[in-house]
Amino acid sequence: MTSPRFPIPQGTLDMLILQIVSLEPAHGYGIAQRLEQISRSIVQINQGSLYPALHRLELKGWLKAKWKQSETGREAKFYSLTPSGRMQLAAEKDSWARLTGAVQLIFDERGGA
């Protein structure tokens, strides 16, 4: 295999972005790097799909954005979580946990048979 990393499952990118931004406001490049780090380069994220996702979340009102000076001194667009975004993140985490739990149960059953 040329690439040991697997593509990110559909729909989880939004959740991951919300999670990253919930820690502290971040700009697009920062989020991209954080994603790389957090996933320890296991999950492959197409940087091209990051920006449409950010704008979609902003339009839904889960993120808000502000132009601020970044660590390099240049102005960057920083995203932060809105209250409704926080609620959405909690809901998604919850359903993710239930989904993985359920999948694990199925796996365990097969292993036991």
């Binding site: 697009g28 490049y29 991209a32 940087q47 132009w67 240049r74 102005e75 960057a76």
Partner: peptide
């Protein structure tokens, strides 16, 4: 304009 700035920032940083 904002999007273009945002993407350029990403590009230049990278």
């Amino acid at each position: 304009r904002d999007l273009s700035r945002e993407l350029h920032y990403h590009f230049d940083r990278r």
